[in-house]
């Protein structure tokens, strides 16, 4: 716990850093991963954990995410995906599914959403998983597993938004949405992340999709600086 640093961005999940009895940052909007990269590079003994929402990590912070994953900076990124910008009033975002109704898409969303696990896997994350809020046990196990790995780890958590997104789309209460998750979620470990679809009408593919090893950024940085100092 001494080496754990919890970093959260802005949004419904932003308060998460305050709930931990660990060192934590509540950072500016979209820059949680940038802060975490800084923490890791400045003190490679620390273990940064970023907890944030889909709007923070993939809309304003999209580039930080892609490039931290590409560099393979050692951190765990937990993305709580509720398919819209919840805190600002339920606007559509980069993860809003096709033809979903939000405040800014009252006639149905015409944009195509990100498949977050696919983005993470393509960017070079060493561990990629997706669970719903109902899979509390499996999610805990995945977090445990991810914390023991070195490199850029990404876990997506599908979460209900009963006050805005689920209300506009007539999905019912939070309990109804959780029951629907139990009905439609299927676990397919190590399936191709490109094929891991989220469709509220048919199925949500959950599981651990990627688990590989890659040289980590701060290790390579230390090796390089050693080499240069010996020269």
């Amino acid at each position: 716990m001494d080496r754990l640093v919890v970093i959260s961005g802005i949004g419904c999940t932003g308060r998460a850093s305050g709930y931990f009895a660990a060192d934590s940052y509540h950072t500016t909007h979209g820059r949680a991963i940038a802060f975490a990269s800084g923490v890791k590079v400045a003190n490679p003994d620390l273990k940064p954990v970023v907890i944030s929402g889909d709007g923070d990590l993939f809309a304003i912070g999209g580039n930080h995410f892609i490039h931290a994953a590409r560099r393979n900076v050692d951190m765990l990124v937990l993305c709580v995906n509720n398919f819209n910008y919840g805190m600002t009033g339920g606007q559509m975002g980069p993860t809003t599914p096709d033809s979903a109704i939000t405040v800014t898409s009252p006639d149905g969303n015409i944009e195509h959403p990100f498949n977050l696990v696919s983005v993470a896997a393509a960017s070079g994350a060493v561990f990629v998983a997706r669970w719903t809020a109902l899979h509390a046990r499996r999610l805990t196990k995945s977090i445990e597993k991810a914390l023991q790995k070195k490199g850029f780890k990404f876990i997506e958590v599908i979460s209900p938004c009963p006050t805005l997104y689920d209300r506009y789309n007539r999905y019912g209460s939070g309990l109804d949405v959780m029951k629907k998750y139990r009905e439609i979620s299927v676990i397919r470990n190590f399936t191709d992340p490109m094929k891991a679809e989220i469709d509220y009408r048919t199925r949500i593919v959950c599981g651990e999709f990627v688990d590989t090893e890659k040289p980590e950024f701060t290790d390579l940085l230390a090796q390089q600086s050693d080499r240069l100092q010996k020269r």
Binding site: L134, S173, G174, L175, M178, K179, R182
Partner: peptide
Amino acid sequence: GCGFCYSF
């Protein structure tokens, strides 16, 4: 009163 505990 969300009902998660007794439903699941």
